[in-house]
């Protein structure tokens, strides 16, 4: 069924992770930053599934499920924080929150 090499799958995961990381470093909108974290988590899960497919075992997919649950929890808390951020600072620019105060 699959004749894809392990390396190409891992390289795809690395490319997706790096794209998410570039977005995290450059974009300043809080929602986009959260979306970039989602991209990076998804790439990590892809690496797990590729590694699981290398040995034909289910463990990689189980780890992907845990990554999925963690991503759901992270995005719920992150978006709640975005709502509070907008209420207290008026904008969604992460540079507005560069002071640790309060």
């Amino acid at each position: 069924m699959a004749a894809v090499s392990l390396d190409h799958g891992l390289i795809l995961a690395a490319i997706l992770f790096v794209i998410g990381f570039v977005g995290l470093l450059t974009r300043r909108n809080l929602i986009v930053v959260l979306a970039c974290i989602e991209i990076m988590l998804n790439a990590a899960g892809l690496a797990f599934v590729v590694a699981g497919a290398r040995w034909g075992r289910a463990d990689g997919q189980v780890m992907f499920l845990f990554v999925l649950a963690m991503a759901a929890a992270e995005v719920a808390v992150g978006l709640a924080l975005a709502i509070r951020f907008r209420q207290s600072l008026g904008r969604l620019d992460v540079d507005d929150a560069d002071e640790m105060k309060g």
Binding site: M1, A2, V4, S5, D7, A14, A53, G56, A58, Q61
Partner: peptide
């Protein structure tokens, strides 16, 4: 670091 060692993925469906 990943290297191009050309391991083929296992052709089974889990």
């Amino acid at each position: 670091g990943i290297g191009l060692s050309d391991h083929a993925l296992r052709a089974v469906e889990v």
